[in-house]
């Protein structure tokens, strides 16, 4: 699935957060959206799925303009979104959380079942009947990805999946995301963890203060230390 974002602007009240953000995600590609805290990574992803009310620009998914489509329609068109703050339904069990995400299989995208997801995230299998509010942060992060995968998306947007997780879990997560990439999913990964981004990203976009400041391949990015020093170093 191909995702194109043209000159996306977003506002919270009178404050403008995004300024003409343009991105391209080709079929089967992983694009890492990097940037410091508050640079506009999350707002970019939220605006794409229609969760920021005031926005302008154009978002095209496989040739279809989805800029002003309702959020549920965007999800049903095959664009999966995994939010930064996980947003687990804490009052539902793990299995019920997965059920909420379930959609019919989509031609051209991997079809997931509860069983195959438990294979991808083995920790979740034993927690199936536990209230999702009672599982650990890492498990919740797995659950939020698994929940979105239940919709059998053809493209996936992950918002800082490694945030607040122990290195061991991040590694596990990276493997899982790599598996998804190998299955042909297009992935837009917003990250602060350069290590994770390097391990799985094909291309890089860097956002700073709501503007895209760099676009290039992972090799170009890795080859030029000044870029990361300028836009990412704290």
């Amino acid at each position: 699935m191909r995702l194109e974002v043209h000159k996306l602007c977003a506002f919270y009240g009178r404050a403008q957060i995004l300024f003409d953000v343009s991105l391209k995600l080709e079929r089967g590609e992983v694009v890492a959206l990097l940037g410091r805290n508050g640079a506009g990574k999350s707002t970019t992803l939220k605006s794409i799925v229609g969760l920021v009310e005031q926005r302008s620009g154009r978002v095209v998914l496989d040739g279809r303009d989805i800029t002003y489509a309702p959020t549920a329609h965007i999800a049903r068109a095959g664009l999966g979104y995994v939010p930064e703050d996980r947003r687990i339904f804490t009052e539902l069990t793990v299995a019920e959380n997965l059920l909420v995400g379930r959609q019919a299989p989509r031609p051209g995208a991997p079809a997931w079942t509860e069983k195959s997801l438990f294979h991808l995230f083995p920790n979740l299998a034993e927690l199936s009947d536990r209230p999702a509010g009672e599982i650990s942060g890492g498990e919740q992060q797995m659950l939020t990805i698994a929940r979105t995968l239940m919709g059998n998306p053809a493209a996936l947007m992950l918002d800082e999946p490694s945030e607040g997780l122990a290195p061991l879990i991040v590694e596990q997560l990276g493997k899982a995301i790599l598996t998804l990439k190998q299955q042909g999913l297009s992935i837009l990964l917003s990250e602060q963890n350069l290590h994770l981004a390097r391990a799985i990203g094909d291309r890089v976009s860097i956002i700073e203060k709501g503007r895209i400041r760099f676009e290039g391949t992972m090799a170009e990015f890795a080859g030029d230390q000044t870029i990361s020093r300028m836009f990412l170093a704290v």
């Binding site: 549920a72 339904f89 009052e91 019920e96 909420v100 919709g151």
Partner: peptide, 25 residues
């Protein structure tokens, strides 16, 4: 029922439910 689970999910976080393709309307 799935309907009931969707209702409970939407009661807690209606935006997230929509982002998972649950038709709010």
């Amino acid at each position: 029922t799935r309907w009931g689970i969707l209702v409970r999910a939407a009661t807690q976080d209606r935006e997230m439910a929509a982002a998972l393709g649950v038709n709010e309307r």
